Amino acid sequence: MESRSLVVVSAGLGQPSSTRLLADRLASAAADALRDRGVEVAVEVVELRDLARDLADHLVAHATSPALRAALDAVAGADGVVAVTPVFAASYSGLFKSFVDVLDRDALTGVPVVVGATAGTQRHSLVLEHAMRPLFAHLRALVLPTAVFAAPEDWGGGTGGSTDALGGRVDRAAGELAAAVAARPARRPHDPFEDAPSFADLLSGR
Rank of each mutant, 00 (worst) to 15 (best):
R35F: 03
R35L: 13
E47N: 13
A11N: 00
L6M: 06
A178T: 07
T109M: 06
G116Y: 14
A30Q: 10
T19E: 01
A117N: 08
G158H: 02
A83K: 07
A31G: 11
Y92S: 11
A186S: 11
G205D: 02
R187A: 08
L26N: 05
S98E: 03
A131H: 05
H62Q: 12
A29T: 00
R37Q: 15
D24A: 12
A30C: 03
E2G: 07
Q122T: 15
L177G: 03
E40M: 10
A74L: 09
T121R: 10
V115T: 07
T85A: 09
S204W: 15
A131I: 05
V8I: 02
D195F: 14
R69H: 06
A151W: 01
F193Y: 04
P152F: 03
V9S: 08
L177R: 06
A180R: 09
L177Q: 07
E176W: 13
V39H: 00
A165R: 13
P66K: 11
G38P: 14
D36N: 10
L202Y: 14
R35I: 03
V102Q: 03
A137D: 10
S98Y: 01
F149S: 03
L13D: 03
A174W: 14
D201S: 06
G161C: 00
S17C: 08
R206M: 13
M132D: 00
F149V: 01
L72E: 02
Y92N: 03
V46R: 08
D50R: 14
G156H: 11
A141T: 01
A83P: 09
V60K: 04
A89E: 14
A196G: 10
T118W: 00
V114E: 05
T146D: 04
L177H: 11
A147D: 07
P197R: 00
V181N: 02
D79V: 02
L51V: 00
L202E: 02
R49M: 05
H190G: 13
F88W: 07
E194N: 10
R187I: 01
V181E: 10
A150H: 00
G14I: 02
V75P: 13
V8W: 10
D54Y: 02
A42E: 15
L21M: 14
L72Y: 03
A67I: 06
V114M: 08
L48G: 09
S125W: 15
P145E: 05
G167K: 11
V46S: 07
G77L: 05
T121N: 12
